[in-house]
Every structure is written in structure tokens, then in C-alpha cells.
Design a protein around this nucleic acid. Structure first.
Lengths: 239, 239
DNA sequence: TTCTATGGTGACAGAATTTGGCACCATTGC
DNA sequence: GCAATGGTGCCAAATTCTGTCACCATAGAA
């Protein structure tokens, strides 16, 4: 019997009976005690919460709480997690980022396919480059939490986006644009958008955007965005 | 790379991109063409509907409707995700951490409550600040993966921690200390510990710690750790 | 047509993993 | 003290997995 199948049988058994012992499971799957113990250990690593009691009358028990799964995350939430983990990996914290990646993989695996498609379309709009050292980042602000949800709809439904923009001199204007891409020039984030009035692409620093909202019943086509040479689509680790 | 992991990567790739080729997948998972073909065959047996087109311009395609799986995250994975989000939020240069938090809060609900308690106690020991620009980070190494499990036990059980430490000059010593806090000064991570011999707090760079182990049957009390002004506990989501 | 890019199969040796057996430890209830 | 239970380390044997190579089939491009 293959490991995979054995794991399935063990989990099924623990689910049905609620409790069992290593010896009983070994008998049941036709493997040795040692092998079953190894299987339990693997299952625990995979996230099954299996309680155990040594001593007479002891045994194994699958935590019923660990059965309720199907947490429904939104595309924006998964996107935000992906970004966090990717940037932590970039910062070089390897032991944690491997685990985090494994967790992300599971999250994505449990995501319904339409959301995976949206996620991919959203990630396709994300580009990374290097910030020119001349840019002043001393006045970097924080981003409006409403940004991402608004972006999600605007990018995925291809609806126009309207927001307040405070430029480098501090003057505030209202813009209505076609969101075409997101650009990361660490530590700054930009919205790259086509301004239909000025008929040109504009870069908007995200920390200077406020009150974002998508404009209902508008639509636009994706345009080819001209980027500098060192700007690339984002590469996420395959794991 | 283990078969199981490879299968996950392949499925994820096909779900994200919708389509791919055997050669591309082989490259991606670091295996031979033959192995990927075998993997595809196994995945088909498991119920994934993978269409294939031979000939130029052909390739593989995963039927999006096939096989919705549920997975569960392990506590360690949730922890790693929490760490990445929390430290990125503290570093301040990332948007979207609210959404990432919201997602994690949902995930956390699926974990058993005793694990969550441990998790929070562990995270309570985490502080974040800003690294002074004078610190030389050119020699930054990678952290020993054994760190996390050893820390987990040492912090939660309040047991002494023993490890090898290589200081800035390269000389190696063995230390036995009371782990009191973890400090992130991006991109560096420190263990803040009370050294009972020197009767003082010491900061140890985690990438210079090796062979960590907790010392059985020792215990200590939590001390008030003096931090610089710009150091804060990480802000957790309101759960 | 011929060439190239694609999926697919069979066989086999060598690499890698898994398995079982064993000794042993810790805990618990009788 | 004893028996039942979970758990770990070690090692040789069994099993599985992997890469390589040769080859086939198909479809589009040149």
C-alpha cells in the first residue's frame, strides 16, 4: 500500500471512529507500527491536528476543529499575502519564507478556479523595477487601505478609477483614469494608468492616492504599457 | 524535489496559467521530461482532467472544473505567514497589510484554540524597529532552519537556550541564555536574551546562531527588556 | 515535402526513499 | 511492578522513483 493511500485510510479512520491506536491502525493498513507512527508525523506536518495520549487507555484522536476548512479568502486577500511573503523572501528571511510559501501554496490550492484566474490576471498587472536614487522618498506616506479593494475591481472589471491625487508640490487634484499596471520601485508603489484626457500614461505614487473608487459602467481596453528597460513583470517563486 | 510537492507545483502552474508544456514544467520543477509526463499521468489517475494537444502550438491544459481540493495549513505555516505580514507591516513600506491580516484572521479561525494561544504568546515576544544605517549587512548569512523549532520550545516553555554564536570578528563561542524577545530590524533578525553569566541583555544576530537547542529542566522568568525608542511590539490584527 | 515542436511509451540501471525490525524511553492506569 | 500506549533513533533490506535513451504520433510551419 502506498503512503498516500495509507494516509487517506488513517485520516478516514480517525474521522469516523474519532479515536484509535497506533497498533490498530497498523493492523488496518497492513503496515508496521513504526510506519504508522511515521505516517502520523507526516500528517501532523501537513496540518492535521492529531492529539495523542500515552499510557493505558490512551490513543490517537483527530481534532474535530481541524476538519472545518474552506476558509473563503478574497482575491485581494490572497494577493496581499502573496506580496507580503514575496517581499519577505526578498528581504532574505529564508527559513520563514519557505514555510510561508508552503502555506500560500495550500491557500491557492483550495481557492476556486475562477478566483485563481482573477489572481493571475491581477498579478499579470504587477511590474518590478529599480528606483532611481534621485527620487526623494523622505515624504513617503502610508497607503490608503481602501486602495487594494478598489484596484481589484477596477483592474479585473476594467473599470475606470477615480481618486484624489496629491502631487509632489502638495496640490490636490481629482483624476479619472484607466488603471493599466502596478509598478513597484522599492520602496515606492506606483499606479500606472492611462489618462484619457491628457491622452498619455501617468505614474501615480500610491501613497499619494486617496479616496479611490471605481466608476461603474465604464470600461476600457488594456494598452501596451511602455516601461523602462530594467522593469520586469513580477516573478513569484514557483513553490 | 519530492513527487508530492512536484504534483502540487504542476497543478498550481496549470491552474494559474491555464496552459503549459511538458518541457516548461520540467524546467520549472527541476525534473526531467519523462518524470513530468509520469506526474501528469498520476495526476490524471487522481482525477485531474488534463487535456493535451500534440503538435506545434500544443501543450497541456487543466480543466478548471476538475477536482476542488481542500487543504489545511499547519500551525508552523500560519505562523510563518503571520510573521511575514506582521514584519512587513511594521517595516511600513508595504501596502495592503490590512487585507493580508484579514485573510490570516480567517485562516486562524480554523486552527485549534490551544495552538492559537501558543502562537500569540510567541508573537508577543516579537518586536520591530529600524536598523541603524551604520550596521554592516554585507555579511548577512542565512538562518538555520533549526532555529524556529528550538525557539518555539524555548520561548513557550521558558527554557534556557544554548547555541553556537559567531560574532562580528568571526570567533565562535557557546552561549546559554534566557530567550526574552525577538527583534526584527529589517533585514536583520535578533534574539534578545538575558545572559545569566554576564548579568546583562545581549542581542544575537539570528543568522550567526547555529546548533540551537533548548536546555531541559531549566526555567526563568520574563524580564522587562529595555528597547530603543523606535522599537515597537508587532501589531497584530484584531483577530 | 521536410522540419520542428509537441505529447506519449517502454525498458533499464542507478539513485533515493520507504519500510520493518529492534532496542529503548516516557507516561498512564491497574 | 506490569502492561498498554505513544514516540525516537538506527540500519539494512525492500521498494519506488528518476533520468536517459530510443522511438512513435500528430500538427503546424517553412
Amino acid at each position: 500500500m502506498k503512503p498516500r493511500l495509507r494516509h487517506d485510510v488513517i485520516v478516514r479512520r480517525l474521522r469516523r471512529n474519532g479515536t484509535s491506536t497506533v497498533a490498530a491502525l497498523a493492523e488496518e493498513v497492513g503496515a508496521s507500527r513504526r510506519t504508522v507512527l511515521r505516517d502520523i508525523s507526516v500528517l501532523r506536518d501537513e496540518g492535521f491536528v492529531i492529539h495523542s495520549e500515552p499510557g493505558r487507555g490512551g490513543g490517537l484522536q483527530l481534532d474535530p476543529q481541524s476538519l472545518q476548512t474552506t476558509t473563503r479568502l478574497s482575491v485581494a486577500e490572497v494577493f496581499a499575502l502573496l506580496i507580503s511573503v514575496a517581499s519577505m523572501r526578498a528581504a532574505g528571511n529564508l527559513p520563514f519564507s519557505d514555510l510561508a510559501d508552503a502555506g500560500l501554496a495550500k491557500i491557492e490550492k483550495a481557492l476556486p478556479s475562477d478566483k485563481v484566474r482573477d489572481l493571475r490576471r491581477f498579478l499579470d498587472c504587477l511590474y518590478v523595477g529599480q528606483l532611481s536614487p534621485q527620487v526623494d522618498i523622505s515624504d513617503m506616506g502610508t497607503m490608503d487601505p481602501a486602495l487594494l479593494p478598489a484596484f481589484e475591481t477596477a483592474f479585473l472589471q476594467r473599470q475606470h478609477l477615480r481618486f484624489q491625487y496629491r502631487d509632489a508640490k502638495g496640490s490636490v487634484t481629482i483624476r479619472t483614469v484607466e488603471p493599466q499596471a502596478m509598478l513597484i520601485l522599492p520602496p515606492l508603489w506606483y499606479l500606472v494608468a492611462w489618462d484619457p484626457i491628457r491622452k498619455d500614461f501617468r505614474h501615480f505614487r500610491m501613497d499619494r492616492i486617496s479616496r479611490p473608487e471605481y466608476v461603474q459602467d465604464t470600461t476600457f481596453r488594456r494598452r501596451h504599457v511602455p516601461f523602462e528597460d530594467n522593469v520586469r513583470p513580477i516573478q513569484l517563486s514557483p513553490f
